[in-house]
Computed example of a mutant assay.
Amino acid sequence: MAAIKTLLIDDEPLALRGLSIRLQVHEDITIIGTCANGREAVKAIKEQKPDLVFLDIQMPGFDGFSVVRSLVGEIEIPLVIFVTAYDQYAVDAFEAHALDYLLKPVEEDRLAEAIERVRDALSQRAAVEQNARLLELLEKMDNPPSEALTAILEKPVEMPSARFDPHLRIKDRGRITIIDVADVSYIDAAGDYMCIHVGDKTHILRETMKTMEKRLDPKVFQRVHRSTIINLDKVKEVRPHANGECFLKLEGGTELKVSRSYKDVIGRFL
């Protein structure tokens, strides 16, 4: 298990100590240092190049957002988990491309979930770097067999599940609702907005259908119409129609039409 070099940044000594203690149960987390303010944090991040940073947002003078902004264009920014006592900063935290966001006092279960997201993100990054090294090696070979190169480069890449989002975060009036993707029944488009249907509730997310498709595991979520994505695990009945279209009945009784352009999806049920 590779060590995840971690830097803790908070102007409250007790908060630093509490987080440090909670992280001890995660054997792959290696704390390489702590910082008490934003300017110390920028210097430490540039010098020590951590994999992960727990960053307090509200610090006097140079806050957590300022730390991230000062690093843009300077170095490769590490994974960032913002930590704060005030949930009013949640929307800004995700707009600053934080991997996750924790409220003080940090709960152990919520911390464990955040660490798992870190592991997934680092695993994905390592896979990309490994593929890049492979291609570089092949380019340096004097006479690489063309058949071997073709087989390697044309082989479909099986993307790890870490690539796909396990949760959707819905921003609404300064608050964020976290939805487990597995609970989503279907998603339909309304202009530039996605309607996320979970049970008898509908959440609105500003996003395009194309972007949403990339976030979801295609083994579970499939497009069945120009403006509709369904969770295959929620389908309870398939009803063919005479004109070549088909209807799917989901948990809860909702029926959705599968257009002829997406009829190949039905093969997953037959």
Rank of each mutant, 00 (worst) to 15 (best):
2 A>F: 11
7 L>F: 10
9 I>W: 01
11 D>W: 03
12 E>L: 13
16 L>F: 13
18 G>P: 04
20 S>Y: 13
20 S>M: 12
22 R>C: 03
23 L>D: 06
23 L>I: 04
23 L>C: 09
23 L>F: 02
25 V>M: 12
29 I>R: 04
30 T>L: 15
31 I>G: 05
32 I>R: 04
36 A>Y: 11
41 A>N: 00
49 K>P: 06
50 P>T: 08
56 D>V: 06
59 M>Y: 07
63 D>Q: 02
65 F>N: 03
66 S>R: 07
68 V>K: 01
71 L>I: 09
71 L>Y: 01
75 I>D: 01
75 I>P: 10
78 P>A: 04
81 I>G: 07
81 I>M: 06
81 I>R: 00
82 F>E: 07
88 Q>S: 15
88 Q>M: 11
90 A>F: 03
91 V>E: 03
92 D>I: 00
98 A>E: 03
101 Y>H: 02
103 L>F: 09
104 K>L: 08
105 P>K: 01
107 E>H: 09
108 E>C: 01
108 E>H: 02
110 R>M: 12
115 I>R: 00
118 V>Y: 10
123 S>T: 15
124 Q>S: 10
124 Q>V: 15
125 R>S: 14
127 A>F: 02
129 E>G: 01
129 E>Q: 14
130 Q>C: 01
132 A>G: 01
132 A>I: 11
133 R>S: 13
133 R>L: 15
138 L>Y: 11
142 D>H: 05
142 D>F: 02
146 S>A: 15
146 S>F: 06
149 L>P: 13
149 L>K: 13
152 I>P: 09
155 K>Q: 14
157 V>Q: 11
159 M>P: 00
159 M>G: 00
161 S>M: 09
162 A>G: 15
162 A>K: 01
165 D>M: 08
167 H>G: 00
168 L>I: 15
171 K>T: 14
175 R>L: 08
178 I>D: 01
182 A>K: 14
187 I>R: 01
190 A>S: 13
193 Y>P: 06
196 I>S: 04
197 H>A: 11
197 H>L: 01
199 G>Y: 05
205 L>V: 11
209 M>Y: 07
215 R>L: 12
220 V>E: 11
220 V>C: 08
229 I>A: 06
232 L>E: 05
237 E>I: 05
240 P>H: 03
240 P>F: 07
242 A>Q: 10
242 A>D: 08
243 N>C: 11
243 N>T: 11
247 F>N: 11
248 L>H: 02
250 L>E: 06
251 E>H: 03
254 T>C: 07
255 E>H: 06
255 E>K: 06
257 K>S: 12
257 K>W: 04
259 S>G: 13
260 R>M: 10
264 D>I: 07
265 V>A: 08
266 I>E: 09
269 F>R: 04
